[in-house]
Design a protein around this nucleic acid. Structure first.
Lengths: 356, 356
DNA sequence: ACGGTTAGTCGAAACGCTTCGACAGCCGCG
DNA sequence: CGCGGCTGTCGAAGCGTTTCGACTAACCGT
């Protein structure tokens, strides 16, 4: 392993000059710079990260704390990660992912000055990790929000806007009995941000359209989805559309619809919220969904963090990103109500009163 | 931040003594050790990882290279990760996860001496990462196997044993027309280990039972699964059981079965291979599956790696772990063939022509 | 012609730890 | 009694960078 010393000797300059070429901390003449760079490539020089970190008190490593429960990472979360990693890489930083549960491990990394900063994913309303890292003096950016966000930097999905757009899409298709399937009641009670915020946004959006908001909670599982659909049909037998915010329950919902002989989208339209295209395409028909900003979230979070770490710019970045509506096969105009007689049997979608 | 110096001063010993207490590299009397430890806790001392790494030429960090394609991490892969992280933590090492695609990033980490070793997941038969890391002189353990494993350490699933057991389960239920749905033809052609090994194992197992092996390839998607089932029925219209090795295709297969009015498990039994319980439970009915050894794989890989890194033990660890059969709702005795008249109408599975 | 900048370079002092060689004291052995 | 070999401790020399102060030479406006 070649060291800076070797490079300096070969280029006939001092060690500090080599360092300045690398860091740009002081001006270096073009001639010298070229000599040094040539020497570096000739020796295949790679700076030693440890030495650099020791001297500069900067590890050039930022941590990404992931949830990693037994369920694994969905495509949506994965997009955060890849976005974040790309952003870090561009800035010459490393992104290390720390599976959570390892709060201790993380605290160790942090208090040993191994981490210049951290991005937290899947933040809870009361999140012990936030406090732990702040204590350790580690700059922090959240993906998601805690209850009290004062003094905290975060990037999050704009649930309000997302729900509003999803509802508007269904309403514009003529749906007026729309049921919202949220996360579990327990999650809402615990104050899980996405669940609470979408609930409120749904109520607001529906009443804004003069419609009655019906929300059902569902456990995060296929069984939960089936139960939720059953409950939904009990509560609103004439529903024509379902809005779902639960990637784990959605397949149960679709299955139960089929079981009951209800076709998607002919009889019931389905919109999945905060969903990655990959998941949306898994279903038959492919799901109309609010596509999460995925990698952009990760990227923005890391960029904000690095600005924070390097002292460049605001250390209080708070930003919301909307999801984009992507219409696929699971939504169509609302079926004609029973009162309307169907006159045109050749309607290709099998829906809507006359014409197309 | 307290340093070793501070600890040494407070304990009235030399810096090196403090270091020896920490590393155990030399004997220290109990009295001195106690003094030092007391001083450490009093100051809340935490060793500086960078300095330690620089001096000892050991970062105490091992990397776990994950696939992280757009599809995300399944529960199965997640188990590897958590197992690996736990094992590293126990040994006082940090595990950093590096999303792949970032081969460069990894190479940088490695050649900057930031990594003491690495575990590679989802190894391909020809894997450029193996060469890159070996060049950088980074100790390596694979999860999976390359084509030529000489001189390489790895841990992998025992596909042979797994397939044999799955087939045996179906045969014991009376199935004799069993179709195996593998990964895509492209994956097999590329020599993707699990696909190739299971194919060979399937052929061996079936012929061992005196049955004809029928294998179908499927793209890794729901659509691929549907297509595969169609192909399977074309090739073996009388099939009574399907063995699937493709977590992405299995939902398509199940959907297509339902489409065709074939009930699981009454008409067709389904066994999913190398599947985590979480995924198996997603389906209706829950899938009988060969449960992957999950976290054990990760743990064993890291333990082998650390032995390698610290010079303790064999630097050539090669081990195979079997999957465990877990019977759930997707398998049952084979339906009676048409030629055989059913004499007992009380068949509890509800299968067979008369009754029910 | 002169102080004041600025660009470009150097040497040396950190950074916080590990590890090597040295040494003092003590043991048991012949 | 003298010697080799332990045990326990110390001081100092690194580990490979960054960064600070200092210095030279050129260049500016006056």
């Amino acid at each position: 392993m070649a060291t800076m010393h070797d490079v300096a000797r070969l280029a006939r300059v001092s060690v500090s000059t080599v360092s300045y070429v690398l860091t740009g901390a002081r001006p270096i003449s073009q001639a010298t710079r070229d000599k040094v760079l040539a020497a570096m490539t000739e020796l295949g020089y790679q700076p030693n990260a440890m030495a650099r970190g020791l001297a500069s008190r900067r590890s050039r490593i930022v941590g990404l704390l992931m949830p990693m429960d037994e369920r694994g990472l969905g495509a949506t979360e994965t997009a955060f990660v890849t976005g974040a990693a790309a952003a870090a890489s561009v800035a010459g930083y490393h992104l290390v992912l720390s599976p959570v549960g390892d709060l201790d491990d993380l605290r160790r990394l942090a208090s040993q000055r191994m981490l210049d900063g951290a991005v937290l994913m899947e933040v809870q309303v009361e999140d012990e990790r936030v406090g732990a890292l702040q204590e350790a003096g580690v700059p922090l950016v959240l993906i998601g929000r805690t209850g009290d966000t004062t003094g905290l930097s975060y990037v999050d999905i704009d649930f309000d806007q997302t729900v509003r757009e999803a509802v508007a899409h269904l309403v514009s298709l003529g749906h007026d009995r729309i049921v919202y399937v949220n996360h579990s009641a327990a999650a809402i009670a615990a104050g899980y941000g996405p669940a609470v915020r979408t609930r409120d946004a749904f109520v607001a959006a529906m009443t804004g359209h003069g419609l009655e908001p019906v929300m059902i909670t569902a456990e995060d599982s296929a069984a939960g989805g089936r139960a939720a659909l059953t409950a939904a049909l009990a509560q609103a037998p004439d529903l024509t559309a379902v809005l779902v915010m639960n990637e784990n329950a959605i397949f149960g919902i679709l299955g139960e619809l089929t079981n009951r002989g209800l076709a998607v989208p002919r009889d019931v339209s389905v919109v999945s919220m905060v969903t990655s295209p990959q998941v949306a395409e898994l279903a038959t028909p492919a799901l109309t969904a609010m596509t999460s900003p995925g990698s952009a979230l990760g990227r923005i979070a890391v960029e904000a963090l690095l600005r924070h770490v390097t002292g460049t710019g605001d250390d209080n970045h708070q930003q919301l990103l909307p999801c984009a509506l992507e219409v696929r096969g699971s939504t169509c105009p609302a079926p004609a109500t029973l009162a309307v007689s169907v006159s045109d049997g050749s309607d290709p979608t099998g829906s809507g009163p006359p014409g197309t």
